[in-house]
Design a protein around this nucleic acid. Structure first.
Lengths: 210, 210
DNA sequence: ACCTGAACACCGTTCAAGT
DNA sequence: ACCTGAACACCGTTCAAGT
């Protein structure tokens, strides 16, 4: 006699053919938070989905592709709404919030930083170009805006990575948000200095004394 | 008939009892550069050392301990001589060189950034406190000096990590050194602004007008 | 003190075969 | 189109036993 068709796993039973990449990625992220990156095996994930591990290879080329998709999902979650307001728009605070969101998202899940440190699949230009535009409202050039976002992303991931590493052995100086804010604000100060210098030059060109 | 006692591996035969942690770490780093982090198995490393993989567990508690030691070795290599000169000492350039050295070392070895992103064993206070002292010659407080070094370390590792990720999928904006220098110099600009502000305040306190 | 043989409990991945 | 059974070629780690 055959036993009942599973569905005993984690409560969420599906009918066949319902399984798609998004569901797998979502489940993988939940499992990651439970067991950590070393515990996240294809067999364990398959069990969580009530399938066999071989089935995962119909949906994903290999485990790397799955992990990269997880990275993409975390970034999407971190960078939700550009949320640009009216004339009181504070570009520095907007950039800071973006960097904080990346770090916060990475820290919100066990080993999340290690996942976000991976390459993510080319999101279809969705919000990235919009964000560049928004960053340019500060007066930065297109290239500077991109470099700024790249720098903040690298710093946020680097910070989360160190903060999430086994706390005993790391040479952490100031734990938590304060250590992060120092680097963040100092970098933004550098941007402000650059923009102020640029405005000064522009003014002197507009009404030359000579 | 027993065959000859190995020594066919990679040319470097040893007599028994010669093997120590430093040799293992050095060999592991060479092997890492050959096969990458996914190829660096205890069995492969043991073969390279002409021992059996079980023997590694006499020298190291587990693979994690070995990897952390590798991280420590790479940082030692990166931060070699403090090399502080005379009165023409340029603290900003000194900090920049330290950050560049970390990034350069990470990029010098396949998957090197992933290794340096790991926690490293507590180095016996060797050069770290000296470096804090050196950084303070800029006028930064002790805490600011530590935060600065932490920030640059995080940014350098974060950069190397992204640069070393599979080049196709990453949203790299400006590849290579230029992308790194932007973040580095902008952060240092922020530090300069902070120090300049501090000097201005100090001067106004020295000779008050009122 | 240092190393091995042999095993344990896993991995990621492939592929013919099922439905 | 989607999933399984069964296998392949590996893993990290332990531990009694050797020298």
């Amino acid at each position: 006699m055959k036993h009942a068709p599973a569905s005993t796993r984690s409560g969420a039973s599906r009918e066949k053919g319902t399984l798609d990449r998004a569901t797998i990625v979502r489940t993988a992220l939940r499992l990651l938070d439970e067991v950590g990156i070393d515990g996240l095996s294809t067999r364990r994930l398959a069990a969580e989905l009530d399938i066999k591990s071989a089935s995962l290879y119909w949906h994903f080329k290999d485990k790397n592709e799955l992990l990269n998709e997880m990275s993409g999902a975390m970034f999407e979650k971190a960078l939700r709404p550009p949320n640009v307001d009216g004339p009181d728009f504070d570009w520095a605070e907007w950039l800071a919030e973006g960097a904080r969101a990346i770090r916060r998202t990475a820290l919100s899940c066990r080993d999340g930083a290690q996942v976000m440190a991976r390459p993510r699949p080319r999101t279809p230009g969705l919000s990235f170009e919009d964000n560049v535009k928004t960053a340019m409202r500060s007066g930065l050039t297109d290239m500077e805006a991109r470099l700024t976002m790249q720098t903040l992303r690298r710093f946020a991931i680097g910070s989360a990575l160190q903060e999430q590493a086994t706390p005993a052995a790391t040479g952490i100086v100031v734990a938590g948000k304060e250590g992060f804010e120092f680097g963040l604000q100092t970098f933004l100060d550098g941007l402000r200095a650059r923009l102020a210098e640029r405005q000064k030059v522009a003014r002197s060109l507009n009404r030359p004394r000579a």
